[in-house]
């Protein structure tokens, strides 16, 4: 502390306009927080779910069994991702405010956009890690089951592999593991990222976590009704003007979450269209940027 007398005379140190390392520090701290809140225990529950589904013999054929494991596990991954995105995002910022941790953070040379980015980044890192782990567990499980089914087929035809056996094996492979499934996990991640950015925006307005969570879940559910809204209501010409206007407003304001459900198609074996995946990546990026900027609009001079 002997050097403090010299700093007394030195001019104010400048602060970079934007510091990625500060964002990183905040993101890692959020990650640590979520880890130490034991959120990753969820992964055990997921593994158990997979084991139960895998050994639950209700399917009529190996193909159906594999298809069910894929659907349930990827469905659970998707559900985990968006639910976690909402709850974690909605809990973390109000908690910082309540605990006054935010005061100490913001009284350091930290820009508010860096804080928001750090929190969002931390949540997304956790979701990314969880999805990767779940994907690997699930890939291992599917491949293991697939190999078992193929071995069964082979041993069921002792006189060499017949046409029929080959056919059955092809069918099993068609419903088994495919590297495209990684993109299905990516799709869930994109959805979760958009949901998290919506939740951040809401939490800059809201005064409580519970309110943020409820409204975010509502927005998420309603965000799946875009196409239905168009098909069922906007098409009806006898609806009155006010309803039409409200629906149009709804379509404009609420994000379209339905189009982020394309993991379902991948899980069911639809062929990937790289151009479309890129477009969705771009759209996800656009959502993140716009919603973060809008959050900043309220957060930048919010008083605590």
């Amino acid at each position: 502390m002997s050097d403090s007398k010299t700093t007394l005379q030195s001019p104010a140190r400048s602060v970079p306009l934007f510091s990625i390392s500060r964002v990183w520090t905040l993101a890692i701290s959020t990650l640590t927080q979520l880890i130490r809140m034991k959120t990753f225990y969820f992964l055990f529950a997921f593994a158990v779910l997979l084991l139960v589904i895998g050994n639950f013999n209700f399917a009529s054929s190996p193909a159906q069994a594999l298809s069910t494991i894929k659907k349930v596990s990827f469905g659970a991954m998707d559900l985990f991702a968006w639910l976690f995105a909402i709850v974690a995002t909605a809990l973390l910022i109000p908690r910082d405010i309540e605990d006054r941790t935010l005061y100490t953070i913001l009284s350091k040379p930290v820009r508010r956009i860096e804080y928001l980015l750090g929190k969002l980044g931390g949540v997304l890192i956790v979701i990314g890690i969880s999805l990767s782990v779940m994907f690997l567990v699930c890939a291992g499980m599917i491949q293991w089951q697939e190999m078992g089914y193929i071995a069964d087929e082979v041993s069921a035809s002792p006189n060499g592999i017949s046409d029929e056996t080959r056919q059955a094996i092809l069918l099993i492979e068609k419903n088994g593991f495919h590297s495209d499934l990684a993109v299905a996990a990516l799709a869930s991640f994109m959805k979760a990222a958009v949901v998290a950015s919506v939740t951040i925006l809401l939490s800059t307005f809201a005064s409580s976590s519970l309110f943020t969570i409820i409204v975010s879940v509502l927005v998420f559910l309603v965000g799946h009704a875009h196409t239905m809204a168009t098909n069922f209501w906007l098409a009806e010409t006898d609806n009155n003007m006010v309803v039409q206007m409200l629906l149009k407003l709804f379509k404009i304001i609420i994000p379209n979450f339905q189009i982020f459900s394309f993991s379902e198609g991948i899980v069911q074996g639809a062929a990937l269209v790289p151009a479309l995946i890129w477009q969705m990546t771009g759209l996800t990026g656009a959502y993140l940027v716009v919603f973060l900027l809008l959050s900043l609009l309220t957060f930048v001079d919010k008083e605590f």
Partner: peptide
């Protein structure tokens, strides 16, 4: 000014 915060330590 964010530069001011480099010069301040705050204990709430």
């Amino acid at each position: 000014d964010i530069r001011a915060r480099n010069e301040i330590g705050f204990l709430p």
